[in-house]
Design a protein around this nucleic acid. Structure first.
Lengths: 201, 201, 201, 201
DNA sequence: GATGAATGAGGGTTCATTCAT
DNA sequence: AATGAATGAACCCTCATTCAT
């Protein structure tokens, strides 16, 4: 469903993928370029033939995720025809990125955001804003339809936080799979209508 | 409501408070001992009269939060007499720590957990486990009463993530205050309506 | 006679040789890695491309001496065919190391032994023990033949001490050369006269 | 026989004695003023009410030993009436200092000589020279009488080295006591006349 | 005399980055 | 492209020394 972000045939992509794996494991600040090299199978000096700096790696990894996520979200929302389905798509896409083939890069994007220099962060902000703008639309609609009962802006932050945090505790392959986690998340914020999710007004 | 974790009269406490502030701002790995010294108004060498190492600072900050949070949570739960009130207490306490006088230390506890060495982490695990055990009880009860509809374990992780993440975006003093944020969170996961939630007022 | 311990063509060996020179001059504890770097012509940070730590340098220097001395002692003893010649070989080898091309490293081995961590010392003990075991054999034999009159264990310690101490006062190139010092040492402990020592000539 | 160098009633003397003990155990460079304080039972800051600096401690310890040794040597030589007895006195005094009540301070004098700044060393040189001048006289006489067969200057250095080195391996209280060690040393360098020590000429 | 917080220089070590090979 | 020796700044920490209390 989610296309891989990095092409294993391409040397630079292998580098980015390995670095993302390492950053996910140890955090950007703690990972050293030597370790990145080891993860990819080259010496640290050789990294700099592919990237300008360590931070450049971080930037490129994040850039790929943002671009891809936005595209996949748009597509998923286009294919969803009810407010509830769109709400589910929001969660589904984010969880798919956080725990599918792009897991490392996505975790880095979410958890090491502050490690990026302000300048570089500004470059990515447009994509990030566009992504969350779609969230906002969906949540505003969901609230209008009585699916959720919190302010859309607040709901967006809370929901995104809840999902981002899953990278600390959730591992697919256990008794709970990705679909199950999606269901549980929906159950938490928008329980099946007719029981408790009935509109207030 | 939340008592300050650090005594401004005590030199070591001032150090811990300053370090927590800095760690919150820059992250543990990025903060240097020279910066900690500057934050407290002493030279870096003098830090080591009060603590054994940089990591020791992190440990002590975290230890204080865990101990205090557990105590406050127990007390708040004792005073809450309905499942809904206890659910609200869970959220209230965590948000009070994340955005009240203990905000820095709490953010450090949540976000820099991995920066602590495995040995040191093990020491704190007992307190952490006790804290979440109380969450589990409350959420299990809340589900039995129909207040929430997700698996308690999953709900705990999602809710905790949503709240922990607020330290990245929420600042009290704006149009939304702590009580408002608590309400919104409750509205998101346990809307006060229909058959599933006892009325708030 | 004594082969150089360090290969000037090899970068790490140059480092070890320079460090040994410095340790001999100032003592291990007093020498700084920055000074070692200066002695070798590189910056202190570059040292750590060749060795793991400052103590590692000390260890490797000592290891080389121990290994080489043992080898040379065995060979010298094999070529000596009388008890007196073997006694002379003991002294000759030790003085050759203390004042020949391996002088720095040997002085470090003898005088900075305690600076090595207990763990590292244990690794070298096997070689050291083997070396002194040969001394013991030779001295026991010398006593049986009436060449010396002290207990072999005590004689070994006294003689070794007397020789080790020469690195504080003896410099070859003066009126007394290495052969002369060897003769004098023999004259002190086993005078070539009367019934107790076989004639030298 | 050897009077204690430090008066336990005097605070500064207790400090010097404790420091000597520590320097003997760890070496001057490795011992810290904190450890010296701990050895004496005060905090490091308080040391500086009694001495000007860490090096000052070293100097004073050494000064005491040199002065006392010289006095005791003179007295012992005065009481010895044969060349052989005077030779024995040389050894006896040095071993008494190295392993009697002044053991710590003497070991420090011999083994940490280089740790003293050149200026301070110059101050002590007069005493040291006087001490060794007596050795020279005795050894010159002993050689003239055929007791030893090495050059007096070389013999002095070798013998002194052999004895100084005993602080690394000899511990009184074992099967070999101080008198025994003295005998063994004499046996090594000047075996009983009539057997091998007969004059050559 | 003793304390202990503070200093500030310097310790060993790490690390992103460069560059000749 | 890759290597690996070298850089140099910065890192955490130690330590002799000072000084107000």
């Amino acid at each position: 469903m989610i296309a891989p972000l990095f092409d294993p045939e391409n040397a630079r992509d292998r580098l980015l993928a390995g670095a993302a794996r390492l950053f996910h494991r140890k955090g950007y600040a703690t990972a050293t370029v030597r370790e990145i090299g080891a993860e990819v199978g080259i010496l640290s000096g050789s990294l700099f033939h592919h990237v300008r700096s360590k931070e450049d790696i971080l930037f490129q990894v994040m850039d790929r995720v943002i671009t891809a996520m936005l595209g996949d979200l748009e597509q998923a929302l286009d294919q969803a025809d009810t407010p509830h389905a769109r709400l589910r798509a929001l969660i589904q896409i984010e969880l798919a990125y956080l725990h599918g083939p792009a897991a490392d890069a996505t975790a880095v994007l979410f958890h090491d955001w502050r490690a990026l220099s302000e300048d570089r962060r500004a470059v990515l902000l447009a994509g990030r804003d566009a992504y969350f703008a779609r969230w906002h639309q969906v949540l505003t609609d969901a609230r209008a339809k009585g699916l959720i009962h919190a302010d859309p802006m607040v709901a967006r932050q809370l929901l995104h936080g809840a999902l981002a945090w899953t990278s600390y505790w959730f591992r697919p392959g256990g008794t709970l799979d990705l679909a199950g986690l999606t269901d549980q998340t929906l159950a938490l914020i928008a329980p099946p209508t007719g029981i408790s999710g009935a509109p207030v007004s």
